[in-house]
Simulated scan of single mutants.
Amino acid sequence: MTPPTKRARTSSTSSETIAVDAITLSKLKQHESLWFEDGNIVLATDVHLYSVHRGVLARNSTFFKEMLELPNVGNTSISEVGSIGNGDSWEGKPLVRMVGDSDEDVYHILMAIYDSRFYRAQKPSTLPIILSLVRMSTKYDFPSIRDEVTSHLEPQYPTDLKLLKVRDSAHLVLDFKEEDDFQLLVVAEQCNVKAILPLLYLDCAALPLDDILSASEAVDLQRSSFLRILRGHEQLSKYTNQYGTLAFLPEQSCMRTCQSARIKLFAKYVKDPPKYAVHRLLLGNEPDDYENLRPSVCEICTKASSEALKAFQSEVWNAIPGMFELGTWEDYKRE
């Protein structure tokens, strides 16, 4: 049962401000699982009050360590330290207002530092938790949590072609959906999670144009990011056509049965190109066979096609960062 809320005691300021703040705080609920009776600091969102421990916050966050060392936390008139308001108290404990942070974000970061079972990089999590931890670990400098979330994300958006073949979104986010990439892209750019950006942009750009438009609008994507995705989408369309050309038309002249089969395969490919064609190329997959026409392709053309696709795979992979104005793969290896 949640204990009844109590009126906050604030230090001297205008009576009007005190009244408004007291009314606002009186509407907040003490969080059921993150209210420790032996806590010595209270964090306030627009929904909950969290009684936690100064030492735990300071040990995990450089920002909180420096902020909590200030002599006026909880003892001065309402002011701002970075994006955290301070100067109030609650039941004799300093009260810090988490200005600009959602209640969900504050809950997730506190759970991550208080409950070792809540989040681990090697276990699937939910997208809201991952986004919260990226935002909060960056904003308030929780280095160990940021490192852990980054190590969770990087294998799913690798900077090495060999690692692309072993990635599995099921190990990243529970019930992962294609449009989730756009939410992650917004946060990754805001928080400078640079390593995952090239593949993240690639995944976004590979969607059908209507899906790109609706997903971009849903997350209020920055115009510059949106234009990068559109330019990448256009380039991927060109690569998709080249993929089919190299797969089915490696030699212009050959025996009639082989040439006829390749022309039919190419025609069907152009009419209905596979979804994520460039991803298939990067994974080393050849286009699907249609109506069992592949056996009619001669050994010479099959070998020429495989060699051409392998070279094209390297070309496309090396072009990905530049496609989205993100430098080169060498830039990521140097970091």
Results as ranks from 00 to 15, higher is better:
249 L>R: 11
245 T>N: 07
290 Y>W: 11
271 K>V: 02
285 N>R: 13
293 L>S: 03
275 K>P: 06
296 S>M: 14
283 L>A: 01
299 E>F: 10
265 L>T: 08
236 L>N: 04
293 L>H: 03
229 I>T: 01
287 P>H: 11
283 L>H: 11
275 K>H: 13
240 T>V: 04
260 S>W: 06
294 R>P: 00
274 P>M: 01
234 E>V: 07
252 Q>I: 07
286 E>T: 03
260 S>A: 15
267 A>P: 00
228 R>P: 00
229 I>C: 02
246 L>K: 14
227 L>A: 09
285 N>E: 06
230 L>G: 09
236 L>Y: 01
237 S>R: 10
279 H>I: 05
286 E>R: 01
226 F>W: 13
260 S>L: 12
284 G>M: 09
240 T>N: 05
267 A>H: 02
227 L>N: 07
277 A>I: 11
238 K>A: 12
267 A>F: 01
284 G>R: 09
295 P>I: 01
231 R>V: 04
298 C>L: 04
235 Q>M: 08
234 E>T: 10
240 T>F: 04
256 R>T: 13
296 S>Q: 05
290 Y>I: 13
270 V>L: 12
255 M>L: 14
230 L>S: 04
226 F>D: 03
292 N>L: 06
292 N>Y: 08
291 E>W: 08
286 E>M: 06
264 K>E: 10
268 K>H: 15
257 T>E: 15
228 R>Q: 12
279 H>S: 07
237 S>K: 12
259 Q>F: 09
284 G>N: 07
251 E>P: 00
255 M>I: 15
289 D>Y: 06
271 K>F: 02
228 R>I: 02
259 Q>M: 11
250 P>Q: 07
267 A>Q: 09
285 N>G: 02
284 G>L: 09
238 K>W: 05
254 C>F: 11
253 S>Y: 10
296 S>I: 04
294 R>V: 11
281 L>F: 01
277 A>C: 03
226 F>Y: 15
253 S>V: 12
230 L>I: 09
274 P>R: 02
265 L>E: 05
270 V>A: 09
290 Y>E: 15
233 H>Y: 13
243 Y>Q: 06
289 D>R: 01
253 S>I: 12
256 R>M: 14
227 L>H: 06
244 G>R: 03
289 D>S: 02
298 C>Q: 12
292 N>A: 02
271 K>Y: 08
226 F>A: 02
295 P>K: 00
261 A>Q: 09
257 T>L: 09
296 S>W: 05
260 S>E: 06
286 E>N: 01
258 C>G: 10
278 V>L: 03
272 D>W: 00
227 L>K: 10
242 Q>H: 08
226 F>V: 04
259 Q>Y: 06
232 G>L: 05
289 D>M: 01
237 S>C: 09
261 A>T: 14
